[in-house]
Amino acid sequence: MYELYFKRLFDWLFSFFMILILFIPFIIVSILIKIDSKGSIFFMQERLGKNKIPFNVYKLRTMSHKKRKIEQVYKNDAEITGVGYYLRRFKIDEMPQVINIFLGDMAIIGPRPCLPNVLEKYNLDDYRFKVRPGLSSIAGVNGSIYLSWKEKWWYDKYYVENLNFLLDLKIFLKTFLIIFQGEDKFINKPKL
């Protein structure tokens, strides 16, 4: 019942109010991005959503404006701008994804949306595409960048098979700890 009705309603209400609340901080951050480097304020990239339907995920641009190959970027990448470092560290670059949540492309909690080439490269199981991808995820609150793809997918499968309100609430609350304390404080590798 939660997954079918209440989760989407909660996501929509949450994203609506977050868009209103974040409007002024978004303007300030946008100005900082433009002062720090050339290029667009936004970074958009195609990702796969529920049922493998592609959509454009919205983020604040944290890297130089140069064209680059689509790949996973880590925190020490030389292309990350000065402002971009802090936007990434405190997850502020993810802020525009409340628009994706509002539109129904994403949920607050769910597996992180993957790049189409990740699907091709690793031949992902379909279970992670049974739900909307999330702004935060169970893998994200258990080490995220410190986990292998196999470990992330294990967490994704666990999430899909155990989706309920209390699990979403736990992930939601733990997300705030990660924002303030850092991902490296919460590494929890699954026993595969």
Rank of each mutant, 00 (worst) to 15 (best):
Y2K: 15
Y5E: 00
F10G: 07
W12A: 10
L13V: 11
S15A: 13
M18E: 10
L22M: 14
L22H: 02
F23M: 10
F23C: 08
I24A: 08
I24E: 07
P25S: 08
I27V: 15
V29S: 03
S30C: 01
I31N: 00
D36L: 04
K38S: 15
K38T: 03
G39W: 01
G39N: 02
M44H: 00
R47A: 06
R47I: 01
R47E: 01
L48A: 04
G49F: 04
N51E: 12
K52F: 07
I53K: 14
F55C: 01
N56H: 09
V57L: 11
K59I: 01
L60P: 06
R61T: 09
H65E: 13
K67H: 12
K67I: 12
E71G: 14
Q72C: 12
D77S: 03
D77Y: 06
E79F: 12
E79P: 03
G84V: 02
Y85A: 11
Y86L: 14
L87M: 08
R89K: 13
R89T: 00
F90I: 06
K91Q: 08
D93I: 07
D93C: 01
I99W: 04
N100P: 01
I101T: 05
F102M: 02
F102P: 01
A107W: 04
I109Q: 00
G110S: 05
G110A: 08
L115A: 02
N117H: 11
V118E: 13
K121L: 13
K121D: 13
Y122M: 04
Y122N: 00
D125I: 06
D126T: 12
Y127P: 05
R128E: 04
R128M: 11
K130R: 14
R132H: 11
R132V: 02
G134T: 02
G134C: 03
I138L: 15
A139R: 02
V141D: 15
V141C: 08
G143Y: 06
S144F: 14
I145G: 10
I145S: 15
Y146M: 10
S148D: 01
W149C: 06
K157W: 00
K157M: 11
Y159W: 00
Y159M: 07
V160C: 15
N162R: 10
N162Y: 02
F165C: 07
F165H: 09
L167W: 11
L169A: 11
K174A: 10
T175S: 03
F176L: 06
I179N: 07
F180H: 13
G182P: 00
K189F: 07
P190H: 01
P190T: 01
K191V: 09
L192N: 15
